[in-house]
Design a protein around this nucleic acid. Structure first.
Length: 1018
RNA sequence: GCGGGCGUGGCGGAAUGGUAGACGCAGCGGACUCAAAAUCCGCCGUAGCAAUACAUGUCGGUUCGAGUCCGACCGCCCGCACCA
């Protein structure tokens, strides 16, 4: 027997059934808790690559897991279909961008279906469909009508290769993010979205995104770059043309008496005006512009300036003037494009001052005594008190800032303000393959919105790409329309929207897609926000910031109540692969042609790698670094071939194995083979001999441990750990003799592994369904057992148990004990911050109320005790006689974890900060700790463990035993509630048991002591 | 320069402050087989016959106990970068 798992047949069978039965359709009207799991939708380049497979597998495991734990899951897929590659293909191959795109979509859709993702394909759409972008045009007009869209002439980043404008976010090191070409500056009339209006909101909103990676939040914070300071005007000593003042911005108004020069950017209006009369200045400014963007080595660039000869008047002393420079380090884009320099406290200003022999005056010092401590080559940025600063002397830096701002405002020469690095979002693109901007330009009326009933403005099909530039511009008829306002001949806007607009709201359209409007608000609000969003960290700023902005903009204009679109964000690592190069010193020179693809490798008997050249000769190959898969390095592995060979389940499993999901995953042939073996092992278990009778307590424990561990790991998106636990469970089952317990364990294994290897799981489940007690027909659509019935008490079973324990133990520190336990668990939860996969409404608050309820239960227990007439034995408080006696007891506990916990618990309860140095009494404690499994095995669902801790303790004085007694407690651990119900770690139970037993012991000791020590030993 | 992250076997990586190296890969030995594939069993940080000792980048500290917490340093990765 031991037939091998036939992945080709099984994969196809279940994929067809899931599609036919609509297994993964999300029901908007479901009463179940909603869970929206989303992976960043792909650009339809034509091929799926391993990065896609990894990304979507992670989301899929989570979606399937959520479905099994009783959630109504929305897990959609679509296509980010506008963009330049389609136009490039049109230029290179002569195909229409639309035809190219849709062909790619078809190919990629089939590929994704072969991996068996639990997607709701009924919601699929492509952003290049007028049925999508028409609604986008409507939303654009909504924003336009609310003043969040405007048009202005502006210097733009022009990509000369792609012949389009780029947003600041798309310029990387002075180059286009896609083409890599050096970006030029041009003046164009552009449409802008007022994202800067939302800078504060977007920044402040980050604080609430505690399930986002810290790194991404920091990147967005830095990108928005908010700084507070003073904006004020210098008066020019002599006016120049229209210019009689100069506005500057500073974050250090406190240092204003340390100013020794003012400087403006080469593009500053005043600099431009001056340059018209001064050829040398014009030349200098040109030079600044040239080096301005291109220089990556900005840090090393020399600080240079050009003295304009003008002087500005110090705002706090009309007799004091400063020279005005044009300087290469001043940016027109930030603040006002003008600064004043304080050399003593800013390195850049110091370098500049040294070069041009400007005065350096210290105005902040550690103390008044050091007011004239010299500044050498390093500016002093340390905080301190103000010196050499007239009315500011003696103030702290913050006080001085406030004082200067206050004075500026009262005297009217400046005001406190906030400046951000963030610019408004330029969305105009001179491209064909994008969403047409729904505006008509009329000579008489100006820009006029296209009336709603004329939307969508559809792209013309008959376009040519034989010459560079925008085909819409040169289309013979498309742009020529009558003005919607006055009827006169007018011209359509021929720019299209940045494709980042398309991806700024697609998650809303997934949640609701009526034909007549962008989305149905009620339905969207049922699903949103996305509970878990998964994608690459390369979108940390652009896409994620724009999507947050767009969502907030819709909220501001009253279209939506949601402000943050993504509650949980996870950024997964890349799939990498070893690289291989021809090993030849003489060929080491020119890069590019030396890479060897893995498929071209052969391995010699000695382990040496080589490749066959065209003439059949062997050529040695050396291993290179492990790098991101890329065509240029030839280290790409095509998912199609791997899927065909190993099947979807093995590939999925590999994507989750070994590396933590946030880190890079090195692809290896050996690794995927290992996963194939695992799939076959699981299959063999399901096909092997089964037994109907017989218990196996040890195996039960392994199963329970696996259920708890796998569930917790999936929740935390720690897939590699869940995989390891499944391996462990498989090993344990393989080693166990046939029994009813083992048969049940195999069924549990299938359930546990089903989110990862769904095809095998469905097949095995269907096979066993005929004989098992549970006749659910479709595993993927399975409802969790008893999920509804357990909602009434979402505390962990252990905690219910704990409450009973404390009741029994009659402890006097119940609150402490319970509180400490809860606090520890919370700490652990925090440690996994940002990964806890519980962003959906309803799920997240579980932790807090749980703790509150536990504490409340303990308080109730204490109150009941009081009502029974029992009074605390420590009536005298910490200074009472009982307490004093207890404090003289030295504790001897056994080693090991339980021993230490017990000793600490006792020392704590005996009122000792630490063990007494000269104990009068000795408390000897022995511990007996055991765990037993028990439970109802009938449907393998309800099974419990019981952990028991017993202590024998003796109180000894000078070798004489005064008291010899036992204490004990136990905890039930309800291991299987539904397939995935979580149990607390057995260690947690241990800690609670220790505290309970310690309470008993101390209570007994206190009773003994309070009775004067008589009363015998029992 | 600023911000963030990370240093654990041959490799990917485990480890609520509690037996470091789970699990996988690679490797070694064995079983089955005419042989191979597949599968199964065992070994697998370093040194040592062994008992044992030493081991989580380095040096300190906190703790009964530190890979984990704190401080300093070294190294690597990522992001931003003349931001006034």
């Amino acid at each position: 027997m031991s037939e091998r798992f036939d992945h080709a047949a099984v994969d196809a069978r279940w994929q067809a059934r899931w599609a036919a039965e609509g297994t993964f359709h999300a029901d908007d009207a479901s009463p179940k808790p909603k869970s929206y799991v989303l992976e960043m939708f792909p650009y339809p380049s034509g091929k799926i690559h391993m990065g896609h497979v990894r990304n979507y597998t992670m989301g899929d495991v989570l979606a399937r897991y959520r479905r099994m734990t009783g959630h109504e899951v929305l897990h959609p897929m679509g296509w980010d279909a506008f963009g330049m590659p389609a136009e490039n293909a049109a230029m290179e191959k002569g195909v229409h961008p639309g035809a190219w795109t849709y062909a790619n979509i078809a190919a990629m859709r089939e590929a994704l279906k072969k991996i068996g993702f639990a997607l709701d394909w009924s919601r699929e759409f492509a952003t290049c469909d007028p049925a999508y972008y028409g609604h986008e045009q409507a939303l654009f007009l909504d924003l336009y009508e609310h003043g969040l869209v405007y048009r202005r002439e502006s210097a733009v980043n022009w990509d000369p290769v792609d012949m389009t404008v780029l947003a600041n976010e798309q310029v990387i090191d002075g180059r286009g993010w896609r083409s890599g070409a050096l970006v030029e500056r041009r003046k164009l009339s552009q449409w802008f979205l007022r994202i800067t209006d939302f800078a504060d909101e977007l920044l402040d909103g980050l604080k609430g995104l505690d399930q986002w990676p810290e790194k991404v939040r920091t990147m967005q914070e830095n990108w928005i770059g908010r700084s507070r300071g003073l904006r004020f005007r210098f008066r020019l000593a002599e006016a120049f043309g229209d210019h009689d003042t100069l506005e500057v911005f500073t974050t250090r108004p406190d240092t204003i008496f340390g100013a020794s020069f003012a400087a403006i950017a080469a593009d500053h209006p005043l600099a431009l005006a001056l340059a018209e009369r001064d050829a040398a200045l014009a030349a200098f400014a040109d030079e600044c512009r040239r080096t301005g963007t291109a220089a990556a080595e900005v840090e090393t660039q020399e600080k240079r300036g050009y003295d304009t000869g003008l002087r500005v008047v110090h705002p706090l002393d009309p007799t004091w003037t400063l020279p005005l420079f044009v300087a290469n380090f001043v940016l027109m884009d930030y603040g006002t494009g003008a600064v004043f320099g304080v050399p003593a406290h800013d390195q850049r200003d110091l370098d500049f001052a040294r070069k041009y022999a400007l005065p350096v005056t210290r105005v902040v010092a550690a103390s008044a005594d050091e007011a004239n401590a010299p500044i050498h080559d390093e500016a002093d940025a340390a905080p301190g008190i103000l010196v050499n600063s007239r009315f500011l002397n003696g103030m702290g830096v913050e006080d001085a800032k406030a004082a200067v701002i206050g004075r500026a405002e009262s005297e009217g020469w400046g005001q406190g303000t906030t400046v951000t690095r963030l610019r408004d979002w330029g969305v105009s693109r001179q491209r064909y393959w994008g969403t047409p901007i729904p505006i008509v330009h009329c000579a008489a009326c100006g820009p006029v919105p296209v009336p709603r009933d004329q939307l969508p403005v559809v792209l013309p099909e008959d376009v040519t790409f034989d010459v560079p530039g925008n085909p819409l511009d040169r289309h013979p008829t498309w742009a020529h329309v009558d003005c919607p306002a006055c009827g006169a001949p007018a011209r359509r806007e021929t720019d299209t929207l940045d494709t980042f607009v398309d991806s700024s709201w697609y998650f809303l359209r997934f949640a609701s897609q009526p034909a007549d409007k962008p989305f149905d608000r009620d339905v969207v609000e049922r699903w949103m926000p996305v509970g878990q969003y998964i994608g690459g960290v390369e979108h940390a700023i652009l896409h994620l910031l724009y999507a947050r902005f767009w969502t907030r903009a819709l909220a501001r204009i009253g279209k939506l109540a949601v402000t943050e679109p993504f509650t949980g964000l996870f950024t997964q690592g890349m799939v990498t692969h070893e690289t291989y190069r021809l090993a030849s010193p003489e060929l080491d020179g020119p890069p590019g042609s030396l890479w060897v693809a893995p498929s071209e490798l052969e391995e010699g008997a000695d382990g040496q790698l080589f490749t066959r050249l065209a003439n059949g000769a062997r050529f040695p190959v050396k291993r290179g670094r492990v790098e991101k898969m890329s065509k240029s390095k030839k280290n790409v592995v095509d998912p199609h071939a791997i899927l065909a060979e190993h099947g979807a389940d093995a590939v999925r499993f590999f994507m989750l194995s070994d590396s933590p999901p946030e880190r890079d995953l090195p692809w290896s042939a050996a690794g995927i083979e290992g996963c194939s073996r695992f799939v076959q092992r699981v299959w063999r278990l399901t096909q092997g001999p089964q037994a109907d009778v017989g218990a196996d307590r040890a195996l039960d424990r392994e199963v329970h441990r696996a259920i708890a561990g796998v569930a917790a790991d999936i929740e935390a998106l720690a897939f590699n750990k869940a995989v390891a636990k499944l391996y462990g469970l498989v090993s344990a089952i393989e080693k166990a003799a046939p029994s009813a317990a083992r048969t049940a364990a195999i069924r549990t294994l299938v359930l546990l592994a089903s989110p990862m290897i769904p095809h095998l799981a469905e097949e095995a489940w269907a096979q066993s369904g005929g004989r098992g007690a549970d006749r659910r027909r479709r595993l993927a659509g399975a409802r969790p057992r008893a999920a509804g019935g357990r909602r009434g008490d979402d505390r962990h079973p252990d905690q219910r148990q704990a409450a009973r324990h404390d009741h029994r133990a009659q402890g006097h520190r119940q609150g402490d004990a319970g509180g400490a336990g809860a606090g520890r668990r919370e700490g652990g939860a925090r440690a996994r911050r940002g990964r806890a996969a519980q962003g959906d409404r309803g799920a997240r608050p579980a932790r807090e109320p749980r703790r509150v309820r536990t504490v409340a239960a303990l308080a109730l227990a204490a109150a009941l005790l009081g009502g029974c007439g029992l009074r605390p034995l420590y009536a005298g408080g910490g200074a009472g006689p009982v307490a004093a006696s207890l404090a003289t007891i030295g504790v001897e506990a056994p080693g090991g974890r339980s021993g230490w916990l017990m000793r600490n618990a006792l020392v704590d309860r005996l009122g000792q900060g630490a063990a007494p140095t000269t104990p009068r009494y000795t408390l000897q404690v022995e511990l007996d700790d055991s765990i037993q499994g028990f439970g109802i095995r009938a449907d393998s669902a309800v099974t419990r463990e019981r952990r028991t801790l017993r202590a024998r303790y003796r109180l000894v004085e000078a070798g004489q035993v005064l008291l010899d007694a036992t204490a004990g407690s136990d905890a039930g651990i309800d291991v299987v509630g539904s397939e995935y119900s979580t149990i607390a770690a057995e260690q947690t139970a241990e800690e609670r048991l220790v505290t309970a037993v310690a309470d008993q012991i101390v209570a007994r000791l206190a009773l003994y002591v309070s009775r004067g020590g008589g009363g015998g030993t029992r």
